[in-house]
C-alpha cells in the first residue's frame, strides 16, 4: 500500500516539506526540489524592492510542487489574514501557513493570534496550516477551528537545535487527529529522522538546506532521513522486549489456584 497522507484536498507521498528562504542563489531551488522530491515548498510575500531588481521566485518552482505561502511579517491576526488573502489573489492556491510572530528575539509564534487568524481563514475556504508553539490545549482549539494540519516548532527558527519540544510534540502526535508537521529548528537529517520516528506526518526544513554549502545534496540527505524515519515508524519498532511469562505469578496466581 502506498504511504500517502492528505492535507486539505492534496495528497502527498514525500514527507519533507521545504522552504525557499536564504538560498545563496535561487537557481538551487529547482535542483534541490528535484533531488529531495519535496512536494510542498513555502514562499513569503513582501513589498517589491525596486532597487534590487528581484525576479519572480515562483518561476523557479516547478508546477507540480504545492506552494505554501506563509504569513511571515504578520504581528497579529488581521495582518495574517490580509497577507493570506493577497497570496490567494496572486494565484498561489488555497494553502496558507499562518505565522504570527511578535517576539523578535526568539521568533516564537503567538498562538492566540494564530488561532484567531485560523478561524477566519478556514471560514474563507483556505487550507490552513498554523505554525504554533506546541501546546496541548491549543491544539484542540486549532482542530475545532478547522486547521488542516498543525506545525509545532521543534526549537527556535533557524537555530538548528533539533526537537527540543520532543515531549510535548509526542503528546500532540498521540492526541491530535490532524497531521503534525514539525517545523523550525530541524538542523540535521538525524533530527528530521527523529521527528518521523516519533510519528510526525512530515517535517518542514528550510534553513538547514538552503544554508548548506551544497543545498542540493543537503535536500537529498534530509529526504532520505525523512524516509528512513517514516519507515522506522511504520515498521512499528519496539523498545526492549520483556521476558514472557514468569515462573511464579504473584498477581494472577490466584486464578489458577481456585480451579
Amino acid at each position: 500500500m502506498k504511504d500517502v497522507f492528505k492535507i486539505g484536498n492534496k495528497e502527498f507521498t514525500n514527507r519533507l516539506f521545504t522552504g525557499t528562504g536564504k538560498f545563496a542563489s535561487k537557481k538551487f531551488i529547482p535542483l534541490m526540489l528535484e533531488a529531495s522530491g519535496s512536494e510542498m515548498i513555502t514562499v513569503a510575500l513582501r513589498r517589491v524592492d525596486f532597487s534590487a531588481g528581484d525576479e519572480n521566485i515562483l518561476s523557479y518552482i516547478p508546477k507540480n510542487v504545492v506552494l505554501l505561502p506563509n504569513t511571515s511579517g504578520a504581528r497579529n491576526s488581521a495582518e495574517a489574514v490580509r497577507i493570506a488573502n493577497i497570496a490567494r489573489e496572486a494565484g498561489c492556491g488555497d494553502f496558507i501557513k499562518i505565522e504570527v510572530i511578535n517576539d523578535s528575539r526568539y521568533l516564537m509564534p503567538d498562538n492566540m493570534e494564530t488561532l484567531k487568524a485560523t478561524e477566519i481563514l478556514v471560514k474563507d475556504g483556505f487550507t490552513v496550516l498554523p505554525y504554533v508553539m506546541p501546546d496541548v490545549s491549543f491544539i484542540k482549539r486549532f482542530e475545532d477551528a478547522g486547521a488542516a494540519a498543525i506545525m509545532p516548532l521543534g526549537s527556535a527558527i533557524g537555530s538548528n537545535r533539533g526537537i527540543r519540544t520532543k515531549e510535548i510534540i509526542s503528546m500532540l502526535i498521540e492526541l491530535s487527529r490532524l497531521p503534525i508537521i514539525v517545523d523550525a529548528g530541524i538542523g540535521r537529517p538525524s533530527q528530521a529522522a527523529e521527528a518521523m520516528e516519533m510519528g510526525a506526518a512530515a517535517v518542514l526544513v528550510n534553513t538547514a538546506i538552503s544554508s548548506a554549502e551544497d543545498p542540493v545534496t543537503a535536500g537529498k540527505a534530509f529526504s532520505l532521513a525523512v524516509q528512513a524515519g517514516r519507515m522506522a515508524y511504520l515498521a512499528d519498532m519496539r523498545g526492549e522486549i520483556t521476558s514472557g511469562a514468569v515462573a511464579s505469578s504473584p498477581l494472577t496466581g490466584f486464578l489458577g489456584e481456585r480451579k
Binding site: G19, T20, G21, K22, F23, K26, T42, V43, A44, L45, R46, R47, V48, D54, N56, I57, L58, P69, N70, S72, I86, A90, C92, I157, A184, L204, N206, T207, S210
Partner: peptide, 10 residues
C-alpha cells in the same frame, strides 16, 4: 498602491 511579490521564506 502596494506592490508585493513572492520572495524566499520558510
Amino acid at each position: 498602491l502596494e506592490l508585493l511579490s513572492f520572495v524566499g521564506g520558510g
